[in-house]
Structures are given as C-alpha cells and as structure tokens.
Design a protein around this nucleic acid. Structure first.
Lengths: 90, 90
DNA sequence: TCACTAATTAGTCTTGACGCTAAATAAAGG
DNA sequence: CCTTTATTTAGCGTCAAGACTAATTAGTGA
C-alpha cells in the first residue's frame, strides 16, 4: 500500500491518472502532455503500474495505458479506515 | 497535496494516524509504540504535521498530537475525483 | 540555579527519487 | 534485412528521505 501512496505523491502521476479517467491513452500521447522527457514519463508509468493504479496493453508498437480504479478505491477505503471515527463498542 | 500523500506513503506514519483515531497521544507515548528512535519519530511527526494530518499542542513539557481528519478527507475527495467516473455530458 | 524529563535539532550516513541524454529493445513495413 | 517509430533501459548527477547518536532547547520543580 505504501507503493500506492508513493505513486500518488507526485503531481505528474496524479495528472496522468486524471487523464486516464476518460479512457486509455498511449505512452507517447501521455508523455506529450507533460513537460518532461519520455524516459522520465516511462519511469512514472512504471511507478503507477507497480502500484496497480494503471494497466498496460501492447498494441503493435504502441503501449496503451488504462486506469485501474480498483487500486485507488482500496486506498480510499484504507484512508477512511485510518481516520474515520472508530465504532464505539456499545 | 503531494505532502499529504508523501506523508501517507510511510507505514509508520499511517500507524501513527491509526493510533490517534482513539484520541490524542503524547510524542513520547507514540514514539514508545514504534521500534525506531525518538528523533526519527519526531521527524515523522513533523511530516504528518506539515501535511496537516495531525496537530500539536504543548502541555507542560509534553506535546500532545491529535488527528486532523480534515486533511485526510481532502485526500479522499481528491482521490475519488481522480479515478471516479467522469460525468457524461448528456 | 541545578537537575530532571520531554522533545527537537544538528550532524552524518546510506539509500532511493527524479531529472536528463544516450543506447538498447520491440514491432511494422518496405 | 534494414529503417523507422515507439518505448524502455542504462548510466549519471543531484537532492531529499529516513535512520542513527550526540547535543540542544523547553519546561518543572527541588
């Protein structure tokens, strides 16, 4: 779970997730949308992938990334559990 | 907001938040609950404090930390916005 | 003031994050 | 097979995270 929060801790990676809400995008198209080099973006994709936040599919020479909302939902659940009011045992 | 996720990315800091669900605790009592040195814990408290996840009050020589759920709720909201289904503009 | 306890700051070390350029890999097409 | 395009891997530099011990500050009370 640390990996998920670590992945979310970088603004570029959060923006990538935001872009993927509307549907899958190729690595190239995603990279073109940010002011950093492709290798740097590739590293961000790896971080997101290892956190389970995105999934990759190869289509010919391009790789398409898609959002995996499940991982984020787990993080939300954990967060709610962390700070949510504890049930009083009455 | 990066600070919040960065703070949440460390297991010890998440455990600190968990402990604080049941009420405020002193820095010393919190530190005693984890297998790292007090200075290291002090650093974790600083990270959590700067992320807005906890608040500190001095009581004599001791410092009492209390959970600030608001910051976590903002993170939850952001996360839901990040990966939540976009409204179709029909 | 001096001593005692609580907590942080200072200093150091090691490791990992993040950016870049250059090189390597994978797939497609001539 | 060679070229072109898409993407990742390798290598490097810099800076911050995270751990420790030792020293410092803050507050209490004899």
């Amino acid at each position: 779970m640390s990996d998920v929060f670590k992945a979310l801790a970088h603004p570029v990676r959060r923006q990538v997730l935001k872009k993927l809400r509307d549907g899958p995008m190729t690595a190239g198209d995603l990279a073109a949308a940010f002011p950093v080099s492709k290798p740097t973006m590739s590293g961000h994709f790896t971080a997101l992938k290892e956190a389970g936040l995105i999934r990759a599919e190869r289509h010919g020479t391009t790789i398409r990334y898609r959002l995996n909302a499940g991982a984020a939902e787990e993080a939300i659940a954990l967060l709610m559990g962390l700070v949510g009011k504890r049930e009083t045992d009455t």
